[in-house]
Simulated scan of single mutants.
Amino acid sequence: MSTDFQKARDALGARLRELRISGPAGRLTGPQLSERLGWPHSKIYKLENGRQTATAEDLSAWAEATGQPATAEELHSRLKGLESHVRSWRRQLAAGHRPVQDAITTEHARTSTLRIWENSLVPGMVQTPDYARAVFTRHAQLMRSPKDTEEAVRVRVRRQEALYDTAKRHRIIMWEGALRSLVCSPQVLAAQLDRLVSMIGLDTVELGIVPFVAPLKIYPANGFWLYDERLAVVEDWHAELWIDDTDSIAVYLRTWNSLRDSAVFGVEAQRVITDAQRSLSAS
């Protein structure tokens, strides 16, 4: 978890503690507040000490219980700032995958050049509906989130219309492992690989594959997406990181360029995809 994120969470906890001890009816102890809220005392401790991130509902309840309901708006604003960079999957997926897809679609619309690196999955921008369906289904199972798979698939596929927009450029690089990961049935993966072959040569898309045997300038770590040079979105198991500071974006851009140097394109990329198709047929 980022240092900046933890500092912001600590600051929010300090503000919550301040509200608890300075209410209009006098100081509340932690046990007294937990009793009012019907929470375990440990939750009060964790929130005030930056050990747990509050929900919007938690903050509204805290403002009411400390006799200061007018502070709820301020607390919600602090929470929004906290989550603008580290967006936990638990919160993002509370209403399913569709809202997450809508949020990223907004960023796509603002972007002229999208650079993508993926090491284990075919990127969403070139996924077939069946492949996307398998990915969403498995992620919802892992996160125990609402299953709105069909809606999320529709939004993702609709976003792919941008691939044919001559005002945009999509520069996509994948590790060869993404071509071989059986995150779906072999039949679905076979169709997905056919789709990738069809992307090669498209004027608005640069599709590169980093083969297993390629010499690497940098190890092929987790995936990330660069929206022009203003935003990097990095996925981890607990959260998405939305990074907008210039220095960090420069690191991701250098990383992307280093990975691109190891990639093959055109006929050579098609050959790597074809090898993956053959291996799939033989298995």
Rank of each mutant, 00 (worst) to 15 (best):
E74I: 09
I44Y: 13
L231G: 01
A103Q: 05
L93T: 06
A191R: 15
V210Y: 03
S88K: 03
I200Q: 03
P129K: 05
A8T: 04
H170P: 08
R180K: 10
L163F: 02
S88N: 01
R254F: 08
S77R: 13
A134L: 03
T111K: 02
D58I: 08
M125I: 13
R115D: 07
R138M: 11
T113K: 07
D247P: 09
T105Y: 01
T128M: 05
R90L: 11
D194E: 14
S112V: 13
A94Y: 05
P186G: 06
L202M: 12
D130H: 07
P211Q: 11
T29C: 15
E18T: 13
D236N: 07
Y252H: 09
I209R: 01
K147L: 13
V264P: 02
I243S: 13
L47A: 09
P211F: 12
W39M: 11
Q6T: 07
T53K: 03
L193A: 06
A94E: 14
A162D: 03
E240F: 10
V251P: 04
D203H: 14
E176M: 10
S34I: 04
A167H: 13
K168M: 12
M199Q: 07
L280F: 11
S88C: 02
G26K: 10
D245F: 15
D102N: 03
L114D: 02
V251C: 12
D261P: 05
A109N: 05
R90P: 09
Q192C: 06
A167C: 10
I44S: 12
L79A: 06
A61I: 08
K147C: 12
T66F: 05
K147T: 11
Y219N: 00
I172C: 04
Y219C: 00
G67F: 02
A54S: 14
S42H: 13
I273H: 04
R98V: 02
A56E: 15
N257P: 11
A56C: 06
I273K: 02
A263W: 00
T71S: 11
G201R: 05
Q52Y: 11
S42Q: 15
E229V: 08
L189I: 09
G30E: 15
E83W: 04
A134W: 02
R36F: 00
L241Y: 14
Q192V: 06
E235Q: 07
P24I: 10
A162F: 05
G26T: 10
A132P: 05
R138G: 10
E35C: 01
L33W: 05
D261E: 15
S258A: 15
P69W: 04
L16R: 06
E83Q: 12
T274M: 09
F265H: 07
V205P: 14
D130C: 02
L12S: 03
N222R: 03
N119I: 00
V210H: 02
E73N: 08
L226P: 00
F265A: 00
F224P: 00
T128N: 03
N222D: 03
G30W: 14
I218S: 00
A282G: 10
R159F: 06
P186A: 04
H139L: 14
P129W: 05
R254W: 07
L93R: 01
W256E: 01
S279E: 15
M143Q: 11
M199H: 05
G38S: 05
A56M: 08
I173K: 01
R169A: 10
D261A: 15
Q68V: 08
R9M: 11
R169V: 06
P215F: 08
